[in-house]
């Protein structure tokens, strides 16, 4: 069976701006793929190319084995797109929005209504179904937008920054909805600027920067590839912090990062289990009191920093205006 998405050497420029610079990506079925990258990395351009909204300048792109450039109409039958902007018609009710999309997918009036009702029900929008979409909260609108992308029973759901601009509660709610879709077997490719979102939803994370894939793997693999485990030490007092910093000066070839404001020392080491024991012995021998010591994988933030050279955006708390 052909992969869900197969992109080879994809390029796209808008004037002088290079959006895709030879992007290669194969997405298999049955896994949620998150495209992670900073603003302007090319994530959205890639999704728009898959959705047949942007024609790449070069390279090849297949969805479910179908050449997007040659048979865009067939690709459109397979995909559902929920974009960065909630692309619903505010003057129509939630139900009317979904019936409209169903009709455009070629459903009969009756089937479109049945499908709209099923989608509204599954997204918890039943009560608001017959209200104008303009009365919906941001989170509800986004769910309706997601619903519109589901009416056509897509094989592939494309979610372009699905939770950007949502408050934290709505974000978590939408994550749950996406997880339920995945549980039902819908293949999902999503873009996000938020590591947490990628970590929460995806089986596989593809890190994109400047129009190319710079890293690719499961969340754990990526953390592992950035190498190295992290030992995190929380000394009891400021004096302990200073002493510990001195005692660990050249520990296992690592330079200890002393963070005075959080009274924390981090050591990046290979083979963390062995070194954790060594570190404890060393601290104990020096009479240094510690509140906590832990071995952990690097956070995706640390991975990202290592691979791209800058940290991605943090989920911003959106003020309700």
């Amino acid at each position: 069976m052909s992969p869900l998405i197969e992109a080879v050497g994809l390029t796209k420029s808008f004037g002088d701006t290079v959006a895709l610079d030879g992007l290669d990506l194969v997405a298999e079925r049955g896994r949620v793929v998150a495209l992670l990258g900073p603003n302007g990395a090319g994530k959205t351009t890639f999704v728009r190319a898959v959705a047949t909204l942007v024609r790449p300048d070069g390279g090849s792109l297949r969805v479910d084995g179908i050449d997007v450039a040659r048979r865009p109409a067939d690709v459109r039958r397979q995909i559902g797109l929920a974009g960065q902007h909630a692309a619903v018609e505010p003057a129509l009710t939630g139900r009317e929005n979904l019936v409209l999309v169903g009709r455009l997918f070629g459903l009969s009036r009756r089937d479109a209504r049945a499908q709209a009702a099923a989608v509204l029900d599954s997204l918890g929008l039943n009560e608001a179904a017959d209200r104008g979409a303009k009365t919906y909260s941001g989170g509800m609108r986004r769910r309706l937008d997601l619903g519109a992308s589901l009416v056509g029973r897509p094989r592939l759901l494309l979610l372009d920054e699905p939770t950007t601009g949502l408050d934290p509660a709505s974000r978590i709610e939408l994550w749950d909805t996406i997880r339920r879709l995945v549980a039902d077997g819908t293949d999902v490719v999503l873009t996000t600027q938020y590591l947490e979102e990628a970590d929460q939803l995806a089986d596989r994370i593809v890190i994109i920067d400047r129009g190319r894939v710079v890293a690719d793997g499961t969340p754990d693999e990526l953390k592992q590839r950035a190498g190295r485990d992290v030992i995190e030490i929380h000394p009891h007092s400021a004096r302990d912090l200073a002493n510990a910093g001195a005692a660990l000066e050249s520990f296992a070839g690592s330079v200890p990062q002393v963070d005075a404001s959080n009274r924390r020392i981090t050591l990046t080491v290979d083979n963390g289990g062995q070194h954790l024991a060594d570190a404890i012995r060393l601290l104990d021998a020096g009479g240094i009191v510690i509140d906590d010591i832990a071995l952990r994988r690097p956070t995706l933030d640390e991975v990202f920093l290592g691979l791209v050279g800058s940290t991605p955006a943090q989920p911003a708390l959106v003020a309700n205006s």
Binding site: R77, F105, G106, V119, S122, L150, T177
Partner: peptide, 18 residues
Amino acid sequence: SSIHLTDGIDDRPLRGSS
């Protein structure tokens, strides 16, 4: 808790509209 939308309608991709 899964979302199942295909009841009653067969599973092929929809044909689109004229």
